[in-house]
């Protein structure tokens, strides 16, 4: 293992975060606070408790997940897309590093950023509502697993994308709708039975449900199913990344 190289890529990517601190950390915090004001305060005052939890507190896990998914994805996608775009990828490709080390560096940095962001949002949220976390270890586990999975997904998108438009399409047109419809702001159980069934096709439902269970001990689907599905997504992204490096797809001609 070339740990020095992993560390070099990781530090490089983290330095990028600190250079763009407004965009990377502050803007998601502001937008989350706005969600809180609009959904939590304005709408929440008209909604009764959900599963014994006040609406304001109920949406906290969903809000964290929403940011986590978007940030893991876009950070990792940008991280690998940009060297491709500027041409500096030549150095990564010609260095004595294996694919797994490249992934560790880029995905590790993207996941670190989004986990830090998730925790910042958690702290921000605690200023608005009373929070308690029933299973903190599981909460962290879901946070890490989701961040890593979506950073991997973002890494794949960054390699696939051959223009800035493609880079934006997946987060905007797929992940955001799935997160909104995946129970960020409501419980799936609040839907008519037919739409409950349809929702189960949405992978984000399992992530949010598992994460919310870690907070409040209640969930839309069983925790084992949530964890299982999260691991399945992780395995799928791993398989895709393995394929990419084995074939050099979109990286090497």
């Amino acid at each position: 293992m070339n740990y020095t190289a992993v560390a070099a890529i990781y530090r490089f990517e983290m330095a990028r975060t600190f250079r763009t601190i407004m965009q990377s950390i502050i803007s998601p915090v502001i937008s989350t606070s706005l969600y809180f004001v609009v959904f939590g305060a304005a709408i929440g005052s008209r909604i009764q408790e959900v599963d014994g939890v006040s609406y304001g507190a109920f949406i906290v896990p969903g809000l964290i997940m929403l940011s986590l998914l978007q940030q893991s994805l876009t950070n990792a996608a940008f991280g690998i897309y940009f060297p491709k775009f500027t041409g500096t990828i030549y150095e990564i490709l010609s260095a004595p590093i294996s694919p797994i080390e490249i992934v560790l560096g880029y995905v590790g940095a993207a996941a670190t950023k989004s986990i830090a962001l998730g925790l910042i949002i958690l702290v921000t949220a605690s200023l608005f509502v009373d929070l308690h976390i029933e299973h903190p270890v599981w909460m962290l586990l879901f946070l890490v697993l989701t961040a890593v999975t979506f950073a991997m997904f973002g890494f794949i998108i960054g390699i696939w994308a051959d223009g800035f438009e493609k880079l934006q399409i997946v987060p905007l047109l797929i992940v955001t709708p799935l997160a909104f419809l995946g129970g960020s702001f409501y419980s799936i159980k609040m839907l008519p039975p037919f739409w409950q069934e349809v929702s189960l096709v949405n992978p984000v439902v399992y992530l949010i449900s598992g994460f919310r269970w870690a907070f409040y001990g209640s969930s839309d689907v069983s925790i084992a199913v949530s964890l299982g599905m999260t691991l399945v997504f992780l395995a799928a992204t791993l398989a895709a990344v393995t394929y990419i490096f084995r074939t050099g797809w979109r990286l090497k001609s």
């Binding site: 070099a8 530090r11 260095a95």
Partner: peptide, 10 residues
């Protein structure tokens, strides 16, 4: 310095 690290050199 990044390049040096990438090539595994201390």
């Amino acid at each position: 310095s990044f390049s040096r690290g990438l090539f595994g050199k201390k």
